[in-house]
Amino acid sequence: MSALLEVSGVRKCYGEKVVLDDVSLTVEPHDVICLIGSSGSGKSTLLRCLNLLEDIDDGVIRFEGEEISDPRIDARDVRKRIGMVFQAYNLFPHLTVLENCTLAPRQVHGVRRADAEARAQELLARFGLADQAAKHPDKLSGGQQQRAALVRALCTHPTLLLLDEITAALDPELVGEVLEIVRAEAEAGMTMVLATHEMAFAREVATKVCFLDQGRILEQGLPSEIFSNPREERTRQFLRRVL
């Protein structure tokens, strides 16, 4: 089976500062890739490069066999197939939860209103948000908002889901309910790349863990290897601090 996403030699700079340096990564279907590393190590930037929110300065990104780092590619066409959830939820405050979830299916994918709403309602119900659908996001708790954001991303049937530290802004007691959904999606076979600080979760769910340090993937491998027997000294230092 060919890789779903292939990142090779990606480089990204902001002015003089190199944020990603020669990053290479392969994502197979049904993989759950956890990006770990300290703040500023490039995890978020990498995710933003993957769905073309940022232009890369070198290297190649291939998605479903097509080079999406080609400037001639239509970024919207790529983003239709990739879902993304942000740390700060980024729900649209002027729309209800249901409208948030049906916006892209209806406007971008041309799904009929009734179908889009049925799909959204079903997902909302599965994630315990059935009675929140008619509310506006600011009326919800942080955990509920982030679950709604996950539903919004899933409503378009993405083939790849990018999660950018989606529990970092949540109270510890709310982290669990969000991770529960991610775990369920992982078990259902959704392909995901996620930046996270939840090491226990990464160890449990990830098929592969990548440790980023100063814009480079210093080490990648099975969670059992990385967490129990890291090869690099910097990985060991990092894990000692967070575990």
Partner: peptide, 16 residues
């Protein structure tokens, strides 16, 4: 880590 020791690849030059 600096921008100095880096030459854009063939692909990047074409992309530019």
């Amino acid at each position: 880590m600096s921008a100095v020791g880096w030459t854009p690849s063939e692909r990047e030059q074409e992309r530019v």
